[in-house]
């Protein structure tokens, strides 16, 4: 097997714009899938709307592509009705924490065994560059022509607060790190959250004087710091930085297992 066995090659190329780094997330996923020898027959990928939500339709798995923001709600039905199946959810930042925010926190609270991979590109790309709840203050979007005035969500803090038992952040520049944490996220039992900082040159870069895709990736390189480095930095120094690393790695009873343990004995045959 090779990672190419996990894609539907004849459907390619992807629809994504030149310079888009969602492909890096996909690429990393395929390599990890190959390493883990993911059983594509027994794996369901759920995704929804937006650029990040459409990419999985090109993968050779059982793919359920649903309504905007609702991927985790559908995935909960998938997993609870078939606990033996591996469930992976791909979302964008708007998908996961704006329209799907409620489903996100509750999936984390339940600790249902689902891996959520969230591509954070700070913008609504597919719909034409509107601001996301992750857009940092000051940056421009079609709906923030004078710059974003709202504070941004910290997706990992949100996941942590809601009870996600694995929470990590990586980015498309540090691909070895991305590879490592994606593997950890996919092998974690319980609800795992992996936030990946990606870049959108077409909708975010062009509006913010970073149309060059390389410059955008370099920005990611420059604004990200590792946990170890962050520990030695002051609050002031960390102000415009994004910390990458594994923030939560813990164990808690998983929903479908509790269900079986508490309610399985009620089964009459």
């Amino acid at each position: 097997m090779s990672y190419l066995d996990y894609i539907k090659e004849k459907q390619f190329p992807l629809f994504t714009c030149a310079g888009c780094t969602h492909g890096t997330v996909t690429n990393t996923f395929l390599r990890v899938a190959d390493e883990l020898k993911l059983d594509k027959e027994n794996t369901v990928i759920v995704c929804a709307i937006g650029c990040a939500g459409r990419i999985p339709t090109f993968l050779d798995f059982n793919v359920l592509r649903v309504t905007h923001g609702r991927a985790l709600a559908f995935a909960t039905g998938v997993k609870l009705s078939r606990p033996d199946v591996k469930v992976i959810v791909f979302m964008g930042d708007g998908d996961a924490v704006a329209i799907g925010g409620n489903h996100f926190i509750h999936a984390a609270r339940r600790n249902i065994d689902i891996t959520a991979i969230i591509s954070h590109n700070e913008i609504y790309g597919m719909t034409g560059g509107q601001y996301a709840p992750t857009t940092l203050q000051g940056f421009k979007a079609t709906t923030a022509p004078y710059g974003m005035i709202e504070p941004a969500f910290d997706v990992c803090e949100l996941a942590k607060g809601a009870g996600s038992t694995y929470v990590a952040r990586s980015d498309v520049y540090h691909i070895n790190h991305l590879h490592k944490v994606m593997k950890n996220a996919l092998t974690h039992k319980g609800f795992s959250t992996l936030e990946v900082i990606t870049s959108c040159p077409t909708q975010f870069g062009r509006r913010n004087k970073m149309a060059d895709p390389i410059k955008l990736v370099e920005r990611i390189r420059d604004i990200t710091v590792t946990q170890t480095a962050a520990e030695k930095m002051s609050v002031e120094e960390l102000k415009d930085k994004i910390v990458i690393g594994e923030f939560v790695k813990t164990e808690r009873p998983e929903l479908t297992e509790i269900y079986e343990e508490k309610l399985g004995k009620l089964r009459k045959n």
Binding site: F74, A75, T76, G77, V78, K79, L80, H106
Partner: peptide
């Protein structure tokens, strides 16, 4: 989510 979950299970 209730509607989403049942569709997920039906799939």
């Amino acid at each position: 989510a209730g509607m989403g979950a049942i569709i997920g299970a039906s799939v």
